[in-house]
């Protein structure tokens, strides 16, 4: 059984009189330890898929089973609890809480989990060490560079040791040098720590780093030039 199982996932929404369907009967399996990149044109639905996997957007129909739980059936509150325990989200714009220090930002997800203050401190220090920012622990976001802010964002995403880390254009707001550093860090999360990653990007160079590369086109998921389709309960690659 795959860590993430997406079955016949459809998302529709209305824009005026028009019904838009960014995701149509999408199927996808992601195994534990996979590093998957997801590309697509603007409006192709890649962020919609990522947000559905992260449990912050509800699909119109279909199932998303992660680690045995169908998250489409969870209530709003239960889904929040589930996110706290299972999802590490790396935002494009870092989205750190401006009034909290780097340390407090990283600690935030742990405040929702049952653990002692000492255990929290240990985990935050490990996460800040992993992104090489221990010496900036007491700095506020405004005192950090864009790259440092994103590293704090990554530390916040990994600190609770989530089931899966999702990233929405995590290098989209960074310069070339900083992008390199962040990508190196993201690769290490997968290769050294064995974390499962799903990254959305529009940058082919970023996507190329992932061993598994997917594209969303016209609501369909394409892998290696073929649609990822489910036939009789098994995955098959269907020629375009």
């Amino acid at each position: 059984m795959a860590l993430v199982e997406i079955r016949r996932l459809t998302k529709q929404f209305r824009k005026g009189d028009e019904v838009i369907t960014p995701l149509q009967e999408v199927n996808l399996d992601i195994e534990a330890g996979d590093f998957v990149s997801l590309m697509g044109a603007s409006g192709s639905g890649k962020s919609t898929l990522l947000n559905a996997v992260a449990g912050i957007d509800r699909p119109t129909s279909g199932e998303i089973v992660i680690n045995g739980s169908d998250i489409t059936k969870l209530s709003r509150g239960s889904l929040a609890d589930w996110r706290a325990a299972n999802i590490g989200y790396i935002f494009q714009m870092h989205n750190l809480i401006p009034v909290l220090t780097a340390y407090e930002n990283v600690e935030l997800p742990l405040l929702l989990l049952p653990m002692s203050a000492m255990e929290r401190q240990k985990r935050v220090e490990i996460a800040l060490d992993a992104v090489n920012l221990r010496d900036r622990a007491n700095h506020y976001p405004r005192q950090l560079s864009g790259g440092q802010e994103q590293r704090v964002g990554i530390a916040r995403a990994i600190v609770a040791n989530p089931t899966i880390i999702v990233g929405d254009e995590p290098t989209g707001d960074l310069d070339a040098d900083t992008t390199e550093q962040i990508l190196e860090l993201v690769q290490r999360l997968n290769s050294e720590l064995g974390m499962t990653l799903l990254l959305v990007t529009h940058d082919p160079k970023v996507a190329a780093l992932a061993p598994r590369q997917l594209r969303l086109e016209k609501g369909k998921l394409i892998e290696k030039g073929r649609e990822v389709a489910l036939v009789g309960g098994d995955f098959q690659e269907r020629s375009d």
């Binding site: 929040a80 609890d81 589930w82 996110r83 999802i87 989200y89 989205n95 401006p98 997800p109």
Partner: peptide
């Protein structure tokens, strides 16, 4: 508004 959305993404319940 965005900050509250971030907090919810991190797992804070609406309540």
């Amino acid at each position: 508004i965005k900050e509250h959305a971030v907090l919810q993404t991190l797992g804070l319940r609406p309540g």
